[in-house]
Design a protein around this nucleic acid. Structure first.
Length: 260
DNA sequence: AGGTATGTTAATTG
DNA sequence: GCAATTAACATACC
């Protein structure tokens, strides 16, 4: 799941379920998802604390734990959160934050590509990971700056978390479809008008997707994602969509609507 | 069985 | 150094 709209949805989910509740225990069921923190330290820092507030930068979710540490959650390709009272444990639960009254929040990650850690500062973490500005917060000028310095294809640049944080394979396809820009177009050859358009469409697409709880199939029929499958047709011109590996991922686009 | 998958990163190649 | 490609990670689905 997790591109920016998914992680923003998870952030709101934590806000709605787990804020200000005393953490009575932390169960680490898979050490593999811990990055640079031991289960003992995670438990020691979180036990007795509360989740105070949440932040998001790109695909990373941060939860202020009351003291000097933030819990950092990244979801890989298949991670998500599941809150419940007396919830039954699933096979892919990796870390469980246990609250009072048998309530708990599970970090579930079937493929184990996600990571959980702690950081003293969100800004330091972002700098350490060399993440670019958040896709929903970056200004048009900042966005153009990030893209136009890259010789990579525009799809690759959009997905490069060091340039812009938050856009992945699915939404990069959607953004370029909206802007009618070909995914293989070189970033540094975009006109100012094109970069401005892509910036506007990026924010529009991510906002829309977040409104729809990050379910790509719930996007309007005029969007690419509901049609993004083998044999799918362009909602604008009805032509067959093109499909090819770009930047190591499967890209879909309309060869008629998205020129060069 | 083999191909595919919403992510990241290291190694390799041009 | 940059960019593209490939493999690797671990699992599920068609």
């Amino acid at each position: 799941m997790p591109e920016l709209p998914d992680v923003e949805t998870f952030r709101r989910y934590v806000d709605a379920t787990a804020l200000r509740r005393r953490i009575v225990d932390v169960e680490v069921l898979s050490r593999r998802v811990l990055a640079g923190v031991s289960s003992r330290r995670l438990r020691q820092v979180l036990r007795g604390a509360t989740f105070n507030r949440t932040r998001r930068h790109g695909k990373h979710l941060f939860v202020d734990t009351n003291g000097s540490q933030w819990l950092v959650l990244h979801f890989g390709m298949t991670g998500y959160l599941d809150y419940g009272k007396e919830r039954t444990r699933g096979p892919h639960d990796r870390v469980i934050f246990v609250f009072a009254k048998k309530c708990s929040l599970a970090y579930v990650c079937p493929r184990l590509f996600g990571r959980v850690t702690l950081t003293a500062s969100v800004e330091e973490f972002v700098e350490m990971k060399k993440l670019g500005p958040d896709a929903m917060s970056v200004s048009a000028e900042g966005f153009a700056c990030c893209l136009c310095g890259s010789k990579a294809t525009v799809k690759s640049s959009l997905m490069n978390q060091r340039l812009i944080a938050g856009v992945g394979n699915l939404y990069s396809d959607e953004i370029l479809f909206q802007s009618q820009v070909h995914p293989l177009f070189r970033s540094d050859r975009l006109s100012v008008a094109q970069a401005t358009q892509i910036h506007r469409d990026m924010r529009k697409v991510l906002r829309r997707a977040t409104e729809r709880k990050a379910d790509p199939m719930q996007l309007p029929g005029s969007y690419l994602l509901p049609h993004r499958r083998i044999g799918g047709s362009c909602p604008r011109c009805s032509g067959k969509l093109a499909r090819r590996t770009v930047a190591g991922r499967t890209a879909y686009w309309c060869p008629a609507c998205q020129k060069t």
